[in-house]
Write a protein that binds this DNA or RNA. Structure first.
Lengths: 351, 351
DNA sequence: CACCGTCATGGAATCGATTACACGGAGAAT
DNA sequence: ATTCTCCGTGTAATCGATTCCATGACGGTG
């Protein structure tokens, strides 16, 4: 592969001049520029990004470590991250942790070894020493969706509290009182927050959330299936199951079907994270939708702010309830979902 | 960030010795090794992969350019590619083309600029000059799923011909005779092949495939919706619609529902590419399943063979029919799907 | 005409690793 | 005792770019 030296030789100039032409430095004569450009495309020369990165100490690359690519929510997030990054002149390397802390660490390590300019993370756990170390060592970093409390890193996420209240209001209006939740791992913020938001919303109606109605899941379909089986085996099973992510809802649907029951007739189902398929399931699933695309864009912008020396901002965007048929038919219209979502931004790093 | 020089200074040896320790070169004294290792972890030293790549002219990184990350088929493919690559000591950089040739070119260009060791591509179109040039210039390359005829690059893909025959037999047994297909772009192999396989299978039953029954799609949900609307507007609409990928099937489902019709009562639906959600749609969708995971692994192995100088093999794995309820209830059992899938491999590059 | 500032250009250092080569010392072979 | 090997180690070149500094030409000004 042709190097800058070959171009210099072919154009009859020095490598310095070639470099100037390629980086559009002002002081190059039109004649030299023309000869260099000619040589460049007759040789099919492409600058070596590896060498350039070594010299300039920047790679114009962002790392994105997500918990599970197979989860459509994260896929969409990854896509919007890449899109925004590309628009701003950066590439993205995606690492899929598959909800496993050691794989997550593997990706963080290789990304840092490659000297990516910044790291976007949706942590699988409460924070491995490696990641905390990377943050402390000054790797520009931003958390998306999930975050680690007590670490000085900006967070871009969505607040589901209001939407969960809307959901509970909806369920209450339909006459449901025995409400259960399938939670995510307690070590993740989204795992614990969603349970808390649910518990608070229930309390407003004087409904309690007994331990038997809290299923312990891990954001994967299988765990949703097992938790649901356990609910169904109770002497007094819940009337509605709320899954803290879309894959566990899928598992719940499996379990309900396997038990020969029907949604919503025998039991209701709702999910956190809306996805296109929920429109087409039997029945369509009521879900809480995050502004995924905006989240991805905001995260990239925050990270690039941090990289380029501007003060990064934590961002919290509201989620909203999308009512469908999986919790029962509503006679009267459901409570209007918040339809004027307003972003709240703060300069505090950790909201 | 600490460099190899800092480690050398801290350990009281030369950089050469440090390098030898890190690359487990045999001739280093136990004493020196211990001092180096001590310095490495007291400094938290991590080798700079950029510098190493520049010197060794290899990045231990593979590029994967896929047509659409949001398509669950490609997501799964990407995941298995990354998994296998990681097991073999390589990283993967994913580029999402979103079915747009210019974005595809953008990714090919940046990946080549980064001097990735090899490229896995599922081309969006018939082959841009850039990609053909890269192949000819000797970038190790393997096509997955889709390929470009006439280019000397190994292909790892799945053959759906037999499964399509099974599907048509199934539909015929259910009494359906007016069968339509929503095709992908003719510029992609999977776009044209699936139509051809369908046409041939129909011919075996003396059924023809009129132009009005061929919808032109682009592998996106919207195009499936539009094609289906057009089918439904025909004076004699088809009895079954076969979508050439899962997203177009989703669009078809939308259009059918919007028209106030029911699947399979009013019209049947089948899809190429099986995904977990098809079990839960209303009704569950009959689909042709590719061995996606195996495809990804085989592609990585072929590419690494090529990179490491072994002769790479093209691989073709069979797809199989998964019968569900979206084409009508079967009284008698459907024809047995091929349940002993056998791989065919060849040393010819382009099958 | 002398001087100075500006501009185009090239030489060479540099980034952080790997590795060929040279060298000194210890132990084996004669 | 002398020579030969082999081993551990260091010096320095190298990969392909960017960029500081020096240089020479040229034009304008006093």
């Amino acid at each position: 592969m042709a190097s800058i030296k070959d171009v210099a030789a072919a154009a009859g100039v020095s490598v310095a001049t070639v470099s100037r032409v390629l980086n559009s430095h002002p002081s190059v004569s039109p004649d030299a520029r023309a000869r260099v450009l000619g040589a460049v495309d007759s040789l099919g020369y492409r600058p070596n990004a590896v060498a350039r990165s070594l010299r300039t100490a920047q790679t114009r690359t962002l790392g994105l470590v997500i918990s599970d690519v197979l989860n459509p929510y994260f896929t969409e997030l990854a896509r919007s991250v890449e899109e925004e990054a590309r628009a701003l002149g950066y590439s993205v390397i995606i690492g899929n942790a598959d909800e496993q802390p050691d794989i997550q660490d593997h990706h963080v390590r290789t990304l840092v070894d490659r000297r990516i300019d910044g790291l976007l993370v949706s942590p699988t756990d409460g924070g491995s020493p490696l990641m905390l170390e990377a943050a402390r060592a000054g790797t520009p970093m931003v958390f998306v969706d999930r975050w680690i409390p007590g670490v000085d890193v900006p967070v871009v996420r969505s607040d589901g509290r209001a939407a969960v209240r809307d959901l509970v209001a909806h369920l209450h209006a339909l006459g449901h009182r025995r409400l259960a939740i399938i939670a995510g791992p307690a070590a993740t913020t989204t795992g614990s927050e969603r349970v808390e938001a649910f518990r608070e919303a229930l309390a407003a109606y004087g409904i309690s959330l007994p331990d038997a109605y809290i299923g312990q899941g891990d954001f994967q379909a299988d765990s949703g299936r097992r938790a649901t089986e356990r609910f169904l085996a109770l002497s007094e099973p819940p009337e509605v199951v709320f899954a803290a992510d879309n894959l566990m809802a899928l598992g719940a649907l499996d379990a309900i079907r396997a038990a020969g029951l029907r949604v919503p007739h025998d039991i209701g189902l709702a999910a956190f994270d809306d996805i296109p398929w929920f429109v087409h399931t039997d029945p369509p699933v009521t879900a809480i939708a995050q502004p995924t695309k905006e989240l991805g864009r905001a995260a990239v912008r925050a990270l690039i702010d941090r990289i380029e020396g501007r003060p990064p901002q934590s961002v919290t965007l509201p989620a909203r309830l999308v009512v469908r048929r999986s919790c029962g038919e509503t006679k009267s219209p459901a409570p209007a979902p918040a339809d004027t979502p307003t972003a709240t931004t703060s300069t505090r790093r950790n909201p």
